[in-house]
Simulated assay, not measured.
Amino acid sequence: MSRTPASALYWRILGINGLIFAAGTTALAVGPVTVSSPILLRELPVLAVGLAVMMAANAFLLRAGLAPLAGLSALMTRMDSLRSRDRLPASGSGDLFHLVDQFNAMLDRLEADRSTSTAVVLDAQEAERRRIAQELHDEIGQSLTVVLLELKSVVNRAPEEVAEELRGVQEVVRSSLDEVRRVARRLRPGVLDDLGLTSALTALATDFSGAGGPRVTRRVQTGLEGLGADAELVIYRIAQEGLTNVWRHSGARNAELSLTQEKDGRVVLRVADDGSGPPAEIGAGGDPGGVGGRPPSKGMAGSGIHGMRERAMLIGARLTIGPSNGGGTEVRLVVPPPGDRPS
Rank of each mutant, 00 (worst) to 15 (best):
S297H: 07
E164A: 08
G307R: 10
A8V: 07
V173M: 08
V216S: 13
M1E: 11
L259H: 08
A184G: 06
L333G: 12
G289W: 06
D193K: 08
E256Q: 04
R157Q: 02
R83L: 04
R131S: 11
A317Y: 13
L28V: 05
L201C: 07
L14D: 11
G71T: 04
L243D: 05
G65K: 11
V169C: 00
N17E: 12
R174K: 08
S2Y: 02
A127N: 03
A301N: 10
L9H: 06
S7D: 14
A6L: 15
G50D: 08
T145C: 04
A48M: 14
L88T: 02
R218K: 13
H306Q: 15
V331N: 06
A74N: 00
G228D: 05
K263S: 09
A133E: 03
T118L: 03
R174D: 09
G212C: 08
K298E: 12
A301R: 13
R332Y: 06
I140C: 03
P323D: 00
P159Q: 11
S209Q: 12
R131W: 03
R219P: 00
T25N: 07
T26S: 07
A70W: 09
T217M: 07
R341H: 09
M300G: 01
R332V: 15
G71H: 05
L88C: 01
E160D: 08
D80I: 00
R309H: 10
L51F: 10
D264T: 10
N58W: 11
R311Q: 10
L243I: 04
R131P: 03
L41P: 12
I13G: 04
G168T: 00
D108S: 05
G326R: 06
R266H: 15
M79A: 15
T34Q: 09
Q221S: 11
R253K: 13
V146D: 15
Y236D: 14
M313R: 11
I20G: 14
E179F: 03
E161A: 06
R109P: 02
V234W: 14
G316I: 03
V154K: 09
D101S: 12
A59E: 03
A229L: 01
S343C: 01
D194F: 00
N104P: 06
R181A: 08
L62F: 04
L269A: 12
T222Q: 02
E262M: 09
E262K: 00
A284Q: 07
V30T: 08
D207Y: 07
R185E: 14
R109D: 06
V183W: 04
A317C: 06
L66S: 02
P323S: 02
T320M: 11
D230S: 09
G275A: 04
R188C: 02
F21D: 00
P5D: 13
G286H: 01
L61F: 12
Q261G: 09
G316S: 00
